[in-house]
Computed example of a mutant assay.
Amino acid sequence: MLTERWRLNADVAYLPWTDFKGRDHHLLRPTTMFDEQRSNGGRGVQVEGVLSYFVTRNFSVGVGGRYWAMWTNSRSDSLCSSSGCVEPTMLAKYSMERWGTFFQASYKLD
């Protein structure tokens, strides 16, 4: 609790292992290939923070933010299609980042 009515919460999570499977869709081309890129052994992190205000002892409203990030090792990629999986000559590194904000309301029963 920051004061009697304000509270700040924060969470951090570490992902020690991630898997990735992506499919490249070129649907605007006359011939479409559905090759998949796969990778495993990556890492990730999630961070979240919420600032809440207690309107009453049991009811609070808040605003928060959340960030996710995941990435793969460039040493563990493979390219897969309908004919099977092969090790590519040029390794790629994949990553994903997402963020967002949210509003919340909470009521605590006694």
Score class of each variant (00 low, 15 high):
Pro30Gln: 06
Asp35Trp: 05
Trp99Lys: 09
Trp99Asp: 02
Leu91Phe: 10
Ser60Asp: 10
Lys108Ile: 13
Arg7Ala: 12
Thr101Ser: 10
Trp99Ser: 12
Gly22Arg: 07
Glu97Leu: 03
Glu97Gln: 12
Asn58Cys: 05
Leu2Phe: 13
Gly62Val: 12
Tyr67Asp: 01
Thr72Lys: 01
Glu87Tyr: 03
Gly65Cys: 03
Val47Gly: 09
Phe54Asp: 05
His26Ser: 12
Ser95His: 12
Arg98Gln: 14
Ser81Asp: 13
Ser106Leu: 08
Tyr67Ser: 01
Pro16Asp: 04
Glu4Leu: 02
Met90His: 13
Asn9Gly: 07
Leu51Gln: 06
Arg43Thr: 09
Asp19Val: 06
Tyr14Leu: 11
Lys93Thr: 05
Arg29Tyr: 06
Arg57Leu: 09
Phe59Lys: 00
Val61Met: 13
Asp24Ala: 11
Pro30Phe: 10
Thr31Gln: 13
Trp6Val: 14
Asp19Met: 10
Pro88Ala: 08
Arg23Tyr: 10
Pro30Asn: 07
Thr89Ser: 14
Cys80Asn: 04
His26Pro: 01
Thr89Leu: 10
His25Ser: 14
Leu51His: 09
Asp24Ser: 10
Arg66Lys: 14
Gln46Leu: 15
Arg5Thr: 15
Arg23Ser: 09
Phe34Val: 08
Trp17Cys: 00
Ser78Thr: 02
Thr18Trp: 00
Gly64Arg: 10
His26Arg: 12
Gly64Ile: 08
Pro88Gly: 06
Arg7Phe: 02
Phe34Leu: 15
Val86Met: 11
Phe20Thr: 11
Ala69Met: 11
Ser83Tyr: 04
Thr32Trp: 08
Cys85Val: 03
Phe20Met: 15
Gly41Leu: 07
Glu87Gly: 01
Phe20Ile: 13
Gly62Arg: 09
Glu4Asn: 14
Val61Trp: 11
Val55Cys: 11
Gly84Gln: 04
Trp71Lys: 01
Val50Ser: 00
Phe102Asp: 01
Glu48Ile: 04
Ser106Gly: 12
Arg66Phe: 07
Phe34Pro: 00
Arg23Met: 15
Gly49Glu: 09
Phe103Asn: 04
Phe54His: 13
Ser95Trp: 03
Asn73His: 06
His26Cys: 04
Asp77Glu: 14
Met70Gly: 11
Ser106Pro: 00
Gln104Thr: 15
Phe20Gln: 11
